[in-house]
């Protein structure tokens, strides 16, 4: 028995689905962010699996950029969350609807 790229892609699909499910069912904005990170990691597994299977480096380069953008996204997202939660410590994702005009 040998580990083929199909195994990695199946694992990646499962992780992505779990992340999406978490994003939909959790209401704490911080945990929702963590679920986005799960989905990004699932995509990274796919990229590296394809890169390895096709002997092509582009997949790894893509993962590198995903990492950088994920870091920027987390910084901005968390500071937005801090700005909201500092005023309303009990806020959930639903309460951000009060931002509407």
């Amino acid at each position: 028995m040998e580990v083929t790229e199909t195994w990695y892609l199946l694992l990646s699909a499962l992780l992505f689905a779990l992340g999406a499910t978490g994003l939909l069912i959790r209401r704490n904005p911080l945990v929702m962010f963590m679920c986005v990170e799960l989905m990004l990691n699932a995509v990274n597994i796919s990229f590296v699996a394809f890169s390895n299977a096709l002997d092509d480096l582009s997949g790894q380069t893509a993962v590198f950029f995903v990492l950088v953008v994920a870091a920027a996204e987390v910084v901005v997202g968390l500071s937005l969350t801090v700005a909201v939660l500092r005023r309303r410590p009990e806020a959930t994702a639903d309460d951000i609807a009060s931002l509407r005009g």
Binding site: L30, A49, S51, N52, A71, L78
Partner: peptide, 24 residues
């Protein structure tokens, strides 16, 4: 690491498991 992306594995640990989770 298993797929011979050693540098990305290192960055994964340092940036994700290190910086991002600590930020959380």
């Amino acid at each position: 690491v298993q797929q011979e992306a050693h540098f990305l594995a290192l960055v994964q640990v340092v940036v994700y498991a290190g910086a991002i989770v600590v930020l959380f």
